[in-house]
């Protein structure tokens, strides 16, 4: 499916970021975590943000969610300024933030409850969502009684029950073992087919980014800027076998060299400032 077809299918979820800078800290400790970042993401697109640790990926995602104010530039979702958190822009973190005192189902039903939906109806919605992530049998468990992978699935269900325009994910599978991570990646793609939404997925795992994304935004080390935007050409649905393909290997090598160049520190940056100013807008 081309990106244009995607936008025809989706009513919302377009992101426009123009010259976004984000400052963190206060007073003398204040610094620019994200610097002059511009990009556009089409409705229904799956975009990964790849970058070294500490480059400001989480910060950028926090700004998209509305938890962090931007210092410069503009951030729009479907032409609306991002003012604060909203159920239209759901966020999933590396470590689950499920309410420990609510069962899996009541956790998922939280969003509908906030919208004032009646109990029977929101339970139905929650059960439906839990079925989608394959956890119908665990609806009554407390988060503590679930495995890490299950907790993340409940977390995803809790966000998707609001039918968000944006699904923001901050290294959601980073704390899982390799096999579980792979299963979660496949599950996420399957869910995304059923519940179409724009996904912005932060990771520092190159394989993960290449397997999941339509496009990868590669960021530089702090302060975070866009190094390059990579189109991922693999057709969907994607079998895991593509990870063994030559094309995959080539793209992986390219990403790796990009990340390595940015990690090699400021000395290199001074020697060859080329490549750092790559225009990220499409």
């Amino acid at each position: 499916m081309s990106r244009r077809e995607l936008s025809a299918r989706h009513k919302g979820g377009r992101i426009d970021a123009e010259h976004v800078s984000i400052r963190l800290g206060s007073g003398a400790d204040a610094f620019e975590a994200v610097q002059d970042v511009s990009f556009t993401i089409e409705p229904g697109e799956f975009v990964c943000i790849l970058g070294p640790s500490g480059c400001g990926k989480s910060t950028l995602l926090g700004a998209l969610a509305g938890h962090i104010k931007i210092a410069k530039g503009s951030l729009h979702v479907d032409s609306e300024n991002v003012g604060g958190p909203h159920p239209d822009r759901g966020i999933v973190f590396q470590h689950h933030t499920l309410f420990p005192w609510k069962s899996a189902r009541d956790n998922v039903a939280f969003g509908p409850k906030m919208r004032g939906i009646r109990k029977a109806e929101r339970r139905r919605l929650a059960s439906e969502m839990l079925e989608l992530v394959g956890l119908s049998d665990f609806a009554h468990r407390y988060p503590k009684q679930l495995s890490g992978g299950m907790q993340q699935r409940v977390e995803i269900a809790r966000v998707l029950v609001n039918r968000p325009r944006l699904l923001l994910m901050d290294e959601p599978f980073g704390a899982l073992d390799a096999l579980t991570r792979l299963m979660m990646q496949e599950l996420l793609l399957a869910i995304w087919q059923r519940v179409p939404t724009t996904i912005v997925f932060v990771t520092h795992d190159i394989d993960e980014a290449l397997f999941l994304a339509d496009r990868i935004i590669v960021m530089s080390s702090r302060p975070g800027r866009i190094l390059e935007v990579i189109e991922v050409p693999f057709a969907r649905p994607r079998p895991t076998e593509i990870m063994a393909s030559q094309e995959f290997g080539k793209l992986k090598a390219h990403c790796l060299s990009l990340l390595r160049s940015t990690l090699d520190g400021n000395a290199l940056q001074r020697l060859s400032p080329l490549g750092i100013t790559a225009d990220a807008r499409n």
Binding site: R89, F93, T97, F99, W101, F110, M114, N162
Partner: peptide, 26 residues
């Protein structure tokens, strides 16, 4: 956990709802 409060806000929780649903049980 401030992350729980942030999540609740992202899921559409008002101040009042967060007090009852998150802060008190937390």
């Amino acid at each position: 956990d401030p992350r729980l409060i942030a999540s609740a806000r992202s899921l559409g929780g008002t101040r009042q709802a967060i007090l009852w649903e998150v802060i008190l049980p937390g």
